[in-house]
Simulated scan of single mutants.
Amino acid sequence: MNKLSIVIPAYNEANTIHLILNKIMAVDLLDDIEKEIIIVNDCSTDDTAGAVANYCAKYPGVNIQYFEHELNKGKGAALHTGISKATGEYLIIQDADLEYDPQEYNDLLKPICKGFADVVYGSRFMGSNPHRILFFWHTIGNKFLTFLCNMFSNLNLTDMETCYKLFNTKLIQGLSLRENRFGFEPEVTIKLSRIPKLRLYEVGISYYGRTYDEGKKIGWKDGVRAIYCILKYGLFGAK
């Protein structure tokens, strides 16, 4: 039986992580695929650790692996840890907030399980699923970063910055990934584009975005870093 490794980078998500875990557990994956949940606590200053411990105590049968960073290293570093620990045939990235809906895992799994894809991105900018209306300049920034990344990767993605990226696990574990923060997104995309005969698909997903008051963390500095990473790995071909 195949297994899906769900990698959750968590930083100060004590208020929501139990809710996202409930949503993950409520999903029945196609083809009876099992779930492996990998939580990487990136040195949270709130009680994220306690929230996870309470959940594991309440539901001891849930397959949760929990890891902690002693220092805050960033989302990318948490993903590196989670990816390295994954044992499933497939791997998906899941933020610990409630912006993305685990009920859509099967939409991303279908192209892989049917033998069409090696990697599937969930796009917030295509399809008819609900999307919360929030920040104009964030949308423009996301589309600009995707456009710039497409220029240097020769892809035609609509949403490079999406959280929902589903991989063949051996493929993602075989990449040398260096970016510790939000530069992970362009780095992994550009490095995937260099793999001969890679089959990359997109599917439309919903998006229940947060405001900064609700806990959103990404800012303009992360956008600048993303541009730097696109140039570093795309234009200059850094390994």
Rank of each mutant, 00 (worst) to 15 (best):
D97R: 00
Q94D: 06
H138V: 13
Y90M: 12
I133W: 01
I33R: 02
G88Q: 06
W220I: 15
D107S: 08
V7A: 11
T211L: 03
V40S: 06
I83V: 13
E104C: 06
A77Q: 04
I20L: 05
K216S: 07
N180G: 12
K217S: 09
A78P: 01
A26D: 09
L79V: 09
I38M: 08
Y55C: 12
E89M: 11
G88R: 03
G215C: 03
T158I: 05
A78T: 03
K58D: 15
N54L: 15
T87P: 00
N150H: 04
D97E: 09
F135R: 09
E179Y: 08
I227T: 12
G174Y: 06
K217Q: 09
C149M: 08
T211K: 01
T169P: 04
K75C: 10
N12C: 11
K3R: 15
N72A: 13
L177I: 15
V7H: 08
E36I: 07
L145I: 15
Y208H: 14
Y90R: 09
L157C: 06
D95L: 02
K221Y: 07
G204E: 04
N54D: 15
E99L: 00
V203M: 05
G115W: 01
N154C: 09
Y121A: 11
V119W: 00
R210Q: 09
L171N: 06
G74E: 07
R124T: 07
G122E: 02
S123F: 01
L79N: 08
I93E: 06
K35I: 09
F167S: 05
D222F: 03
I205A: 03
D97C: 01
Y201T: 07
K73R: 14
A226I: 14
F144T: 14
R225W: 05
K58I: 13
I227P: 00
L134N: 07
N22T: 14
N150A: 08
Y228M: 13
T211H: 00
K35C: 08
A96H: 00
G234F: 04
A86R: 00
A117M: 03
D101T: 03
S84F: 02
V7W: 06
L200C: 07
F116M: 11
Y105F: 14
L155P: 00
Y228Q: 14
D46T: 08
G88F: 03
S84P: 01
Q173R: 05
Y208D: 10
E68V: 15
G122K: 02
C229F: 06
L109G: 02
Y90I: 11
Q103S: 15
G223E: 09
V120N: 02
K217I: 11
I17Y: 05
G82M: 04
I190E: 04
E161C: 13
P111D: 06
R225Y: 05
K85F: 13
M25W: 01
E179G: 11
L79M: 12
A53S: 15
D28Q: 11
C56K: 15
A51V: 13
K114I: 02
N63H: 14
